[in-house]
């Protein structure tokens, strides 16, 4: 049994929309960095594609705001699939759509439910892309983030504290991709030459987790 976390902010549709604001802003700000990382081991478009997707998702949610947290995640996932292209569109789309579907129709959820939903999303990414930890992909940020999130919540930490731990783990996970050799995606074609570069997908994944941490902190969790 999880101990109930200290009074956290309600994780409702408004919370997820603030997360979307933060995520969209972070992707927009870091797009040149993502593209630069991608030009080293990919095809120099990760930042551009993610910016296009999150801009579209943000606009769609603003125009027709879903009234549940799951609804927001599903809407963002669907927009990413319809507007990003590449591998990132289906993978990030699946991550958020699966997570949103897992949350169902509940108007307010707890941090542990959000964690379980994100876990379902991350599992969906693994199934779709066929990657595992250490393949130098977005999973190398997402998996450690989930572990840190779970650990902190199980230890009785609050939402903000737990997501802060997740963000740190995601950042460290992204940085830890530098010495790895890519085994999935376009970077894998480089073989040994993919070593020495930080994975762009792991980097954008860390931005999305950090956006959760920022949202929870500002909500005063």
């Amino acid at each position: 049994m999880n101990a109930l976390p200290p009074d956290g902010p309600p994780i409702d549709a408004a919370f997820l929309r603030r997360w979307l604001d933060a995520a969209t802003a972070a992707i927009d700000r870091e797009a040149p960095v993502l593209t630069e990382l991608d030009s080293a081991i990919g095809d120099a478009d990760h930042g551009t594609n993610m910016r296009r997707g999150f801009t579209a998702a943000h606009t769609a949610v603003e125009q027709e705001p879903p009234d549940t947290p799951g609804g927001v995640l599903v809407a963002v996932g669907r927009q990413l699939i319809s507007s990003v292209g590449g591998a990132s569109g289906p993978l990030y789309g699946t991550l958020l759509r699966r997570a949103g579907k897992r949350l169902g129709d509940e108007p307010v959820v707890g941090a542990a439910q959000l964690r379980d939903a994100l876990r379902a999303g991350v599992e969906g990414v693994g199934q779709l892309g066929g990657a595992a930890a250490g393949d130098k992909t977005m999973l190398d940020a997402l998996l450690p983030a989930l572990e840190a999130l779970s650990g902190a919540l199980d230890a009785g930490g609050g939402t903000a504290e737990a997501f802060a731990a997740a963000a740190t783990a995601a950042d460290e996970g992204a940085q830890a991709t530098i010495p790895l050799r890519a085994r999935k995606g376009r970077a894998s074609y480089l073989g040994e030459r993919s070593i020495g570069h930080q994975d762009p997908g792991a980097t954008s994944s860390a931005l999305l987790i950090t956006a959760f941490a920022d949202t929870a902190r500002e909500a005063g969790a």
């Binding site: 478009d45 699939i81 507007s83 292209g85 590449g86 591998a87 569109g89 289906p90």
Partner: peptide, 11 residues
């Protein structure tokens, strides 16, 4: 056609 060097979307 997708964006430059980016696959098209399912739709």
């Amino acid at each position: 056609p997708g964006e430059v060097f980016t696959s098209p979307v399912p739709d």
